[in-house]
Each structure stands twice: as structure tokens, then as C-alpha cells.
Design a protein around this nucleic acid. Structure first.
Lengths: 187, 187, 187, 187
DNA sequence: GATGAATGAGAGTTCATTCAT
DNA sequence: TATGAATGAACTCTCATTCAT
């Protein structure tokens, strides 16, 4: 019985992300979500207190995934260039493969009215920790965690979200920005 | 007959950006916009065909400003480091000083349902041209325009939009990422 | 969950017909209908997909009633004159007693934009069948079904809808047109 | 200068009838009418006091045309059968050739809220007079004017307004009902 | 006389949420 | 727990009409 509940909750979450990608904010009404998740609108309220609560729960869950995913790709024996390459490529592939989740996260976090009530992002800690270690061992230069994050991940977003590019163009651009970031960060 | 009032149209546009910043999508209803712009809801429809048309018009106008602004700061006698510094700092200061415009642009362009119908961004051409020149003269390394854009401007966004930072922290981070990008791009 | 309330749907339909009679098209707004039916405007949309759908449903239901009503009055042992008399009188009395339904049907079917999407009138088949039988048995002359319908029923409408006549005048006129039609149709 | 005005007023009237035919009541808004007539919405109010006034003016004008048209076809030397034939055929051809006017008249007069304020139909007097004459001379039987009107013209409406019939079918049916009415009315 | 701008009121419809089952 | 019915409030947008030019 517990299993079934989780499935329903999951269906709802996926419906939200999918609708947010396809239709934006105006597409994510409770009734549309319920229709897509194949539940009743009332059922949404057995899993979440309100629409806002629902969005925040989804954000909290989804916004952590990418960091776990990236950390899983990094191996201890990698050198600095490899770590940068791995982090950026895994960030890229996670975004590409989970387009709707990422679209949701971006739209949510760009909305100050929502995101300011919901400061989470514990997940970045793992990555931050890894980079800190690399700084100490003089593998990468000594910049603040925020700057590193900005330089490693935000240029990748620029590439992923550009709808005018096809995937092979994106792949080529990814190679370029990885090279650029490696030169910027490594000694 | 009365003449169309440019100032009224401007008030509407500003109201949209301001509400989008403060309240996000759910705050930008026609009636809220009209109230803020001190016009009747019906008046909005003498200036725009529909809400979507309105948002696209605003996007088209606002998304060009920043490029004009940046290009105005660049001087011919600057060297490569100075140009990078100037572009990034002027991008930063434009975003900071026009927070609501930028919030609007980000939220609009993150919504595929809207932005896919409205591909403009002619303004970037000026910047792209300048960078192309610098590539030819071997001032900066030979990367594609898109990669350069990704590396120059997206890390800056990461800093500006982080609400947990105060302005002096942001300023310090900006210095860092400029340094990083200069190392990445210059010979 | 609550069950859908047939009585509520009926109240809505009656409200539409009644308002259409009293105020015409401009009176049949969803909010007026809802007020008259003592439901919320939103409730209308749990019973019908749209206003147009609602009007078509009502038309489909109401436009059949009269034919069933007329056929119930006709007895097998009647001669030709009696059948004509019965059909015309029952048509007349149905229209008179269900003024709002008839007003609705007339206004709906006079609006090509609506009625062209909604061609029903299966109910006439019963009457057509009866008349066909009478033609075969040489009780009435051999004219097409449409001509018979035009001659039997449309003159009656002319009388019913004339607001300048009181009911006793109408009754006298009805006698006249029945006599006229009998002479036209019977051998 | 007077000429130009009349043209504009005429354009407005025609726009109303045309929109009423194509779109029904919901299509006849002042702004749509103005657009179709190629005038400004405000201009409508220089010719008519209000929308209701406009509709009534149009009704008053258009509802007379058909009677004048019919009377023009009748010749003094015609016998009874010919007069009936001529009246019915000219009614039919007027309706067919002026579909939009007739659609307007029907829709207007079916709306009690409007038509009850606007009882005109002086034009029928000519026809009534003619029929009265024929009754006196024992050409047609002695029925009231209203009954004669009902029997002569309403069956024709049934044929004209049936969208399922093509024009040759309609023509055949017209022949039938003329024959029927002649038998009913003539000695 | 003629116009497009402007608007309060109201249109049809959907919203987030609650209720009764 | 899960539901479809129900709804007041709000949505986008158009209405008939007036105003300033």
C-alpha cells in the first residue's frame, strides 16, 4: 500500500516538471497536473499542503539529484583536468537527459517569490568539498567556491538551453568551454 | 481622437517587469499590471494584442538594451584584458541596476513556450563582432562566439542572482571570475 | 465524492430557456444563467464543456420533445382530417405551453453559426413516417415530406409567435389554418 | 457631402446583416461592425443613438423591402392562381437573394426583448389590401389576413432556411407548396 | 463629422481549494 | 485514502460607449 502512494506522488511530480517544460507557469495548474498524472485534483492535496508546498517539495528533491549524479562520476585517481572534465560533462549530460527536471528547477529558482522561501542546495556541499580538497592540494587555483561554481556550471547551462543548436553543435561547444575552464582553473 | 500615449505604454512595460521581479509569473496578471501602471485593464489591449504579445514586445525591447549598454563602455584603445573586464563589469552593473528588466528577461527566456516563438537577440551581434576582431588580431584565443558568450556572461549571472550574497561579496566574486575568464581567453 | 446532480443540470437548462425568452441572446450570459439556476458560474462547467456545448445540448434535448408529444396524441382510428387537426393542434398547444423551450429552439436554429454544427431532428421521423403511410393509403395527397412539414407546422408558428394577438384570437386563427391545410392536403 | 454620409450608414447596415448571418448575435459587436464597415466604432454613434437603436432602424428599413418587392411583381391582369404564385415566388426569391437581410430580420423578430419595442410592418398593408380585394371578388376564400399571411409565406421560409437542401431541391419544393396553397385558397 | 484612445462593466472560462462520499 | 462535484475568486479579454482632438 505504501508503494502505490509513492508511485502516485512520483507521477504528480513528473507531471509538474513535464508541464512546466512544455507550457511554462501557465500550464501548471492543479487540474492539468492531475489530468496528466491520472489522479483527481483532490488527490494532490493528500500529498501536498498546497500548490506552493508542492512546488517547493519538488524543487527540494530535484535540485539535489544533479549533485549526487555528478559526484558518482568522479573517481579518486582522476587528475585535475579529468575532474573538471567529468564534472562539466556529467552536469551537461544530466541536464540533457533530464530536461524537464532542469527546466523546472531553472524556472522555480528564477522566481524570487518562490525560491527565497526555499533555500536548500545542500547537495552542492559534496562538490564544494571536492573542489576545496583540490585547492588545498594545489591542483586548482585558489578561488572561492561560488566563483568555481559559476565558472564550471553556468557556461554549460548557456549551451544546453540554446534551442538553436543541435546536439552535435552543443557537444563541440561543450568541449570548448571545458578547455577554457581547465585553462582558467588549473596551474 | 486622442494620440497613443508612449508614456502609458512605458508604464505598462515597467509594471510588468517590476511585478515579475516581485511576484513572479503569478503576479503578472493583466489587472495587477493595469493597477500598477495606473490604467484600465482594457487599455492594455489598445497597446498590445494579447498578454503573450505584450510579454514578447517587452522581451524584444529589453533584451537588446544590455548589449547597447556594454558596447558603449568599450573604448578602441583598450587591450584584451581591459575589454574582457569592461564587458563583464558593464554586464554586471547593468544587471544590478536594472534588476527588474533582467529578472523579466530571465524568466521569459526560461519559458520555452514563450521564448521559442520569439527568437531575437540581434543585439549580441555587436559584441560578437568585437570578439571576432580580437580573435583575428590574436588578442583572445580562437573559440566560437557561443562559447565566448557562455564564459563571459553566464558566470556573472550566477553571482548577480545569488540572493544570499551582499553587494560587496558580489563585487569580490566578480573580480575573481573576471580574472578567471581573462586567463582562459587571453594568450 | 458527490454524485452529479441531474436536478441541477435541469435547472440550468430551464434557466437558459427562460432567459432566452425574456431577454434574448444578450440575456443568456453564464453568470445570469447561474444566478437563475442558483448555482455558481463555475458549476455550469461541470455539466457542459462550454457555453456553445451547453446550448447545443439543450437544443438537442428540447427539439425532440415536440415530436414525441404530437405522436402521442394521434390515435390509429383517426381519419385524415382528424390526423391533420390533431398534429396541428398538438403542435400549437405544445408551443403555447412550452413557450420558453420554443423560443429557445427558434432562436438557436435561426442562428446558422450554431445550428449548422448541430443537425439533429431525428424526432421528425415519427411524423414523417405517419404521413408517408397516409400518402400510400391515399388519405393525403402525394407531396414530399418537407412540403408537408412546411405546410402543417410553419403557419402555426406564425400564429403562436404573434404578440399582438390574444389567445382567443389565436385560437380562431388556428381553426382557420387547419381548415386551409386540410383542404390543401386531403382528397 | 450628404451622399457620403448615406454611403457610410449603408455600409454599417450591411455589415450588421452580414455579420448576423455569419456569426449570429455574438458576432455583431460594435467593433466588429465598425471594422467590417470600415469606419471607426465612434462613427456608428453619429448615425445611431445606441446599438439597440441601430438594430431597430435596420429592422424597420429591411422589414419593409420584401413587401414593396412583392407588390412590384403583381400585375393587375393576373388571376388568383397567378397572384398566389407570384407572391410566393417573389417572397422566395427575395429571401434567397437577400439572405443576410432575411437572416437579420428573422433573428431580430424572434427576440421578443427587441421586437416587442418595435412593432412596425406597415408594409404588409399593401399585400393585405390586395388579398382583401381578392376576397371581396371571390377569387380567394374568406380567411383573415393573418391566416392568409401564415399560409402564403411561412411555408416558404421553411424551405429557404433548410441548409440541407440545394437550390434545385428548394425550387421543386417551392412548386409543391405553391400548388398546395393555391388549392387551399382558391375556389 | 469623424476618429482612435480610453474605460468600467461584464463576458466566458479556469483557478486553487474544499466538501461529501 | 481517494474521488469528482462544487465554488468564490480571479483570469484573459471584449463589450458598448464616451472623450479629446
Amino acid at each position: 500500500m505504501r508503494k502505490k502512494d509513492d508511485e502516485k506522488e512520483q507521477r504528480i511530480k513528473e507531471a509538474v516538471a513535464s508541464l512546466m517544460l512544455e507550457e511554462g507557469w501557465s500550464g501548471t495548474s492543479i487540474s492539468k497536473i492531475a489530468r496528466k498524472a491520472e489522479v483527481s485534483p483532490a488527490t494532490v492535496y493528500t500529498y501536498f499542503d498546497s500548490k506552493e508546498d508542492m512546488l517547493q517539495c519538488i524543487y527540494r528533491e530535484y535540485s539535489e539529484h544533479v549533485f549526487e549524479y555528478m559526484m558518482r562520476q568522479v573517481e579518486p585517481e582522476m587528475d585535475g583536468a579529468q575532474v573538471i572534465d567529468t564534472l562539466m560533462r556529467s552536469f551537461y549530460s544530466y541536464m540533457t537527459e533530464n530536461e524537464d527536471m532542469f527546466s523546472f528547477i531553472e524556472q522555480f529558482s528564477n522566481c524570487r517569490a518562490l525560491s527565497s522561501k526555499c533555500a536548500c542546495r545542500k547537495g552542492i556541499a559534496g562538490v564544494a568539498c571536492l573542489l576545496e580538497e583540490m585547492k588545498k592540494e594545489h591542483v586548482i587555483r585558489n578561488y572561492s567556491a561560488k566563483s568555481l561554481e559559476a565558472v564550471l556550471f553556468y557556461p554549460v547551462k548557456a549551451i544546453v538551453f540554446d534551442e538553436k543548436l543541435n546536439s552535435s553543435e552543443k557537444s563541440g561547444l561543450l568541449d570548448e568551454v571545458i578547455e577554457l575552464v581547465q585553462r582558467a582553473l588549473l596551474y
